[in-house]
Design a protein around this nucleic acid. Sequence first.
RNA 1: GGAGAGUUGACCGAGCGGCCGAAGGUGACAGUCUUGAAAACUGUUGAGGGCAACCCCCUCCGCGGGUUCGAAUCCCGCACUCUCCGCCA
Length: 423
Amino acid sequence: MIDLAVLRNDPDVVRASQIARGDDPSVVDQVLAADERRRSALTEFESARAEQKAMGRDVAKAQGDEKAALLARTKELAEKVKSLQAEADAAETAARELVMGIGNIPEPGVPAGGPDDFAVVKHVGTPRDFAAEGVTVQDHLAIGEGLRAIDMERGAKVSGARFYFLTGIGARLELAILNAAMNLAQERGFSPMITPTLVRPETMRGTGFLGKHADEIYYLEKDELYLTGTSEVALAGYHTDEILDLSDGPLRYAGWSACYRREAGSAGRDTRGIIRVHQFHKVEMFSYARPADAAAEHARFLETEEAMLQALELPYRVIDTAAGDLGSSAARKFDCEAWLPSQERWMEVTSTSNCTTFQARRLSIRERGEQGTSPVATINGTIGTTRWIVALLENHQQADGSVYVPPVLRPYLGGLEVLTPVA
RNA sequence: GGAGAGUUGACCGAGCGGCCGAAGGUGACAGUCUUGAAAACUGUUGAGGGCAACCCCCUCCGCGGGUUCGAAUCCCGCACUCUCCGCCA
């Protein structure tokens, strides 16, 4: 939720934000009008209520006829208070719903436009010249099947399309990546967390995932629980309704969880292999920081993601996502994209968002300041997922179908330096 | 699944249907005392909202309804916590 004060004092900032995101700028005026209605309804209710309370005190003191007369009057007033309260509540709800529909205001420097209007921040590493090396490029599934690491067919048999088994070295490889990620995060001050993956509607709504992309989320109707698509949801919900002490710096968590996504809008895309699946694992960084520190924390997240990519010796680029592709909570988002040799394109492997105070305001997560409390900032970012297996297999494949293991993963694989195909 | 107990401010813990946003205590902060500290004493100490702002006013005693002129207090529903029994591991 954006700051209503900004919207009131500086509506043009919000209009510009809406335009940059490709959203409707006229909601700003709708919100202003609704807020106006809300405040006047509230004022009316409050004065009637104050009168009622004052009269109630008189009733308590009065006796006999006097009391009977007062009671008659307060009875009328009670009706009035009730209806004014209903009006005020309705106006409140209406205004709130409108405000909730507005996305976060992008940081200065974020490119305007949609998914294709990102800015490339940098390239790191160079994709291998497989032709020059005499390697015929295989895609991750072919390599993975050669290693007996990935079994899509049985995944489909058991659970349907976009499900898979990681078998043998495949399972170990995923654990290795996630453990290495967890280890790196811990070195950088993130406290390890294993989080719930089923959350209540309030939590899902609070984190801003129930907006336009609600279709992406699995919902268990009988239990009124949502399956989370990232541990960000649980980690953001963790401190809901709390007042935090950030005097020793940001609170940093590294969440490990299964992630579930319906992939409703992506039928036909990335259908081969494990690039886009309904269930995977992820290690996610999450910080609660002072708003003034949020951008620096965000930069730290990006740097940590890059450190992980570099440790895995993967060529990648960093993009600064355009406003229209930000997601409602984010004010800025950097994605790291690893090279995907089989398709000769870049593939998103990490994503880090600075949500400024947007999530915290919805979830009522604050810190105590000189004059009362104020919402904190939240930052999230990926350091490892099942999808990284794809980048790893493809970029480190050898002519004979074996796969080079970067040193950082070896301790988690019993010292293995090369993954070799099963004959 | 069955039976019972509970949910009050940072924490513990009282609370009759009518100045109860809530006694008392702990903690924290400030002051007095002290060379300094401790102890003692005194005071301050919840959140959200309305108002340009102060005063002031409103809301909040797990959540949502209801009864009532008036609800932390009575009634109903839900969530969560704890105990016991059963069942499954």
